[in-house]
Design a protein around this nucleic acid. Sequence first.
RNA 1: GGGGACGUAGUUCAGUUGGUUAGAACGCUGCCCUGUCACGGCAGAGGCCGCGGGUUCGAGUCCCGUCGUCCCCGCCA
Length: 605
Amino acid sequence: MCGTLRASDAGKKAVLMGWVNRRRDLGNLIFIDLRDRTGVTQVVLNREVDAAAHDKADLLRNEYVVAVIGTVKRRDADTVNKNIPTGEVELVASEIRILNESKLPPFLPSDTALTNEETRLKYRYIDLRREVMQFNIETRHKVAKAIRDYLSVQGFFEIETPFMTRSTPEGARDYLVPSRVQPGTFYALPQSPQLFKQILMISGFDKYFQIVRCFRDEDLRADRQPEFTQIDLEMSYPQPERVWEVVEGFLTAAFQAAGSAIKTPFPRMDYDEAIRSYGIDKPDLRLPAFTEVRECFTAENLQELAINANLPVIAIRTPKVGELSRKERDDIKPMFHAKGGAKIFEDFKRIGNKFPEAAAAIAKKTGMEEGDLIVLVAGSAQAGPQTAMPTHRKVTPAELAIYASAGLLRLALAQKHAERHGIFKKSGDAAKDFRFLWVTNFPMFEWDEGEKQWMAAHHPFTSPHEEDMGLLEAGVESVNDPQSPLSAVRALAYDVVLNGTELGSGSIRIHRQDIQRKIFRALGMTEEEARSRFGFFLEALEYGTPPHGGIALGLDRIVMILAGAESLREVIPFPKTARAVDLMCDAPTPVNERQLRELGIVVKK
RNA sequence: GGGGACGUAGUUCAGUUGGUUAGAACGCUGCCCUGUCACGGCAGAGGCCGCGGGUUCGAGUCCCGUCGUCCCCGCCA
């Protein structure tokens, strides 16, 4: 292969096949850099040594596919190229065969400047020839293989579940597949194999996993594609800790395969604490946590600043951004998306001028250092509770609005000034570069302001906390009451988070039919509705279901972080654009009348 | 559904206050070159300034619309 020859191979005959990466034509001497996925080797053609081969090399152009037969020669000391692993040798060609010519590509894999993504995606096969993309796809393979191997050794079976399945209209939108045999009916592509893997537990396959494609018809983001790959697993009889142990095990193996030694066990944090300290349920631990600074102000201070004294006052510290220009300070405000009456104080100097004592206390409490940026977020006096309100929840909705607004701002500020603080740069120390975290004890239910009712925060098959069964019992009839005890029911659910990205989400499931029925009731679903949607599953639950639980992790996201990529598109060979289009094969497209007729489908204009 | 950024040669970009024939680098074509490795030198080709409309004596530049790509909010049980 083109990346494997070394000085010890000198004198051997070799045949290399690959693409012409670059040609350096010095007249009677031509150098060809020959490339395949393993690397690049220099081929040399000397007119005096072999005129026929030299003439052939004259015809070569970028991205031609050629076979070169020749002898490996150790290079003279002064012509060694230290920048490439094969730099100590070159192949002296005796014969060149052009296996295929190439049109001039819109961009070259050897280009140093990165072409715009639209062109890259249209000519993805050229783009994938680039060294970075080859590395990313190789990393993806290694990670998937390490996980398969690890789980197999642990006694898990990889079992396939259907792609053409039943639509369960809840949660994300389904991609639908019309049935020709039964016109007017549709399969759905799975958002996850959730019910199938639970049924596999009922079926006695007590350790299941699958590296499986999932589909969600929702709007895209840099870290969200409509089809994505999950490492899905489920086991019978586990405590949450057992699931975490398995995940930590296969992630260690996966990161090892990609060259990073991570530390386990991962730290754990309650959902409530994550919200209070980071304003988000997937904290990026590489950045400083919030500091609660309400106590740094006097009651009069708060009044003068029109801050609601019953809500948190949060200081966000962004390290080492240095002195901000007037414009940079003005740019902070538009980055702030206020929820529920949250307001921002982006000019900490002004706070310092007006309330020097409070500012000093804040600087001390946040551990502010020279060059650190401090921004405050608080509740506006006009909005939110005017008195401290009793609640079942540790974090009230009004507080959550403040925390969440501050949480988004914390990330936006860190992103904006990434160049300056350098926290996101890889240091080579896996313990610093990869900050894993388990977030646990999620709320079971979330209030849906639009529907005016409580909804499942994770999914309706998640088991409530044993200790909170009483609250569930008490709240089961008050699904439309925002103050319902349901708000305080915790779920046996957990997320694994890496550097602020949610890698995966799992839970201990409900294995008892009576509790499952209660949850559906708490979600405002009648017996009939539950039956019509999940009847097959509810029935299965009645035939000796073992306690079980599991998790699913996004393979794409793991590889993205390992590859240091900014977007999933860099680690998925054929990804889709923000409008869910495949630019290479131009999907989706309309289909012809005959196809539609066969399916009994009429498209409305 | 909403907000923002961008769109100029094959590619990456520049293009001043609206003013002559829209530039550079890389790539491409041809010629020269025996130690290059992002080779070098000389010459050359290459433009619907995304598209449509408007303002203006005059538009790559200003305005409106539209299409496309990217980022974010909503959404993602």
